[in-house]
Design a protein around this nucleic acid. Sequence first.
DNA 1: GCGCGTTAGGAAGGGCAACTTACAAACGTG
DNA 2: CACGTTTGTAAGTTGCCCTTCCTAACGCGC
Lengths: 385, 385
Amino acid sequence: MATKRALRPTSKVLPEDGRAHNRAMLLQHLFHTGPASRAELARVTGLTRVTVSDLAASLIADGLVAELGPRAEGRVGKPGTRLRLRTDAFQIVAIDLTADTRLHGAVLDLSGDRKARKDVAVEGLDGDEALAAVLEFARELVALADRPLLGVGIGSPGVVDAHGTVIQAPNRGWYGVGLAETLSRALSLPVHVANDANAAVLGEFTFGAASASGVLVVTVGQGVGAGIVVDGALVRGHGDAAGELGHVTVVDERDDVDHAPLGRAQQCACGRRGCLETVLSVPALRHRIAGLDAAERDVALAAVGRRLGVALAPVVSALNLSEVILSGPPELLGGPLRDAALRTIRERTIPVIGTGLDLRMTRLEEDGTLLGAAVLVLSAELGFG
Amino acid sequence: MATKRALRPTSKVLPEDGRAHNRAMLLQHLFHTGPASRAELARVTGLTRVTVSDLAASLIADGLVAELGPRAEGRVGKPGTRLRLRTDAFQIVAIDLTADTRLHGAVLDLSGDRKARKDVAVEGLDGDEALAAVLEFARELVALADRPLLGVGIGSPGVVDAHGTVIQAPNRGWYGVGLAETLSRALSLPVHVANDANAAVLGEFTFGAASASGVLVVTVGQGVGAGIVVDGALVRGHGDAAGELGHVTVVDERDDVDHAPLGRAQQCACGRRGCLETVLSVPALRHRIAGLDAAERDVALAAVGRRLGVALAPVVSALNLSEVILSGPPELLGGPLRDAALRTIRERTIPVIGTGLDLRMTRLEEDGTLLGAAVLVLSAELGFG
DNA sequence: GCGCGTTAGGAAGGGCAACTTACAAACGTG
DNA sequence: CACGTTTGTAAGTTGCCCTTCCTAACGCGC
């Protein structure tokens, strides 16, 4: 009987908001399912053919949709003229600020295809300097676009609020930096910012065919982050800090539980000991396996995977996730580490939770955050993703 | 710049849906903030005074709202006539099926005040028998109502989907039982069902003043369950099984990490070993402290609290929760167990997560699930909670 | 006492969004 | 080739919220 509940109807809804929503539905469907006639769209959405025609006209006028000629298949009745999303008509600038020493960016079209890319090495920029460097970098990317730009999407390390203000990013020396507002003003374009791991999960969700009902992406690089989508929405958390998994304690003092000891809890950059980051970050993993032979290596990686599994089991259980995705160097994460993590989660959760779970490497290679940054723009400007 | 994103615009929105939403906003505000004039409501919601007047008229016509005379305070201008929610005008039947041997129910008004209650002892009913008993119990409660009923809300153990079908509830022998549909047909009333712990978190949220942005309720009784609200919405999970925290492994073999050993991992009813339920359920806790003096007792309870903290730390971190609420016998949970759990979570998470966190006992005593069941009805029938 | 500015509530009229009904065009089928 | 089917559009209706205007009720200052 229960259908849908908005626990907090927080802001007014006008008829025009409904129309915007319905327009986005059409785009969403064309984006995910490909070309379709007005009549098909009407059947799928539940709107009438008349209304869909009207909405389609506005989309065509905006240059977002184009007619594609009638369908060839022989069926009864007048063949419908199929509509397609003009994924080539607009472009998006996407920027990944994850790395400490490189700025990574691209110009993408609406289907996520890379039209141009740009990488720049930077050295230990801090505070305003770093902000200026990002702005300059964004300017250069904007200049590379050869179609109208929908906006700029940025995945940044640190805690980022819904308005695109970086609440804190210690590595950059950013505290309360209005990144979106600053860039938006300077570039005269919409700018959307999210935490890099949160962006990554959006990328997986839209371009990696991840499940809508419950995904967690673990990003492993210099540090460890996570982004979560449950029930079709990104989890932001009380202080916009959702996904801070890198600094959960996973190695206790005198920890010899799993017959493949990790040694004593290591000091972490955050000042505490035994954080997930101290065993799962790329530098930590490389250091751990340095000089080991293949067999020893597998044991060492599995031990880390087991720790990851122990930390993830309560999260997977609590949220009834259907998918956990690892993003990072596949030679480190893809083998014994992944296997051990999945096995551990299955062992430590009740079958109803663990059985339906998949744990896999990303299929987006290194572009998850970049694509996710584009999704920020897609969903904010066009209402879908 | 980013404002709000609906990652999955899934169904059409008509102007009348917008109106329903706006109506619910008014009710929501009157419910949580108390009486207000039309002009105040217009300012708060962003709607015009004209529109609010029109919506208010429809609410008055429906008997949900009444005028309350002008405000006494002397201020410039014409004093507005305040509107109040008629919390006494309708009633809700709420049923808590958590206990194995008792049916627990009440007739509540819209403010959660109990107008009648009913408890019935049942003995090991299974399958269809149990279903018949619940229906009969609901009938009796419906007969106790002396105002028009909005509907029936039920908190049930097990996995319950959004349509009120109990996917599985092993203790009841229910597998795929259309509880909501069956009762709705028999009673000719709207019936809404949710997992008992999920209902409990809704109860805390609406009647316990819990944070909207991130709460987790741990229900401790015969078993252990959990319900989660993040970003203002209940978490359902991929298979509607979100909150299954009771069967996460928390005690490993050879576990002597915390100098207050819990002994070897105990066998759990689910067939595995070392589940949270084997140390945190009420029977397990009572068994553990039986015959201990006060000091030993505190140590034993703290050891369990520490285990709970270890399991919750990754969840709190991943979701950036602001509140964890314990529901169950305060003499077991409220003291050293709570303290140890909170301390453990703080130790094992980065300060940005742990500092803002509160972990406390429920203030709803044993009625969390019952009130939550009422919230199911409130939010489904009137659109607020 | 009396105008004046301010606030609350309602009435009238307009614009927009989706609906229903009706129709022409284009296609297979018998 | 008539017929039913399907598509897309045109015309008119209904519903919802808006802007604009008006009246009522209050405090304030002269």
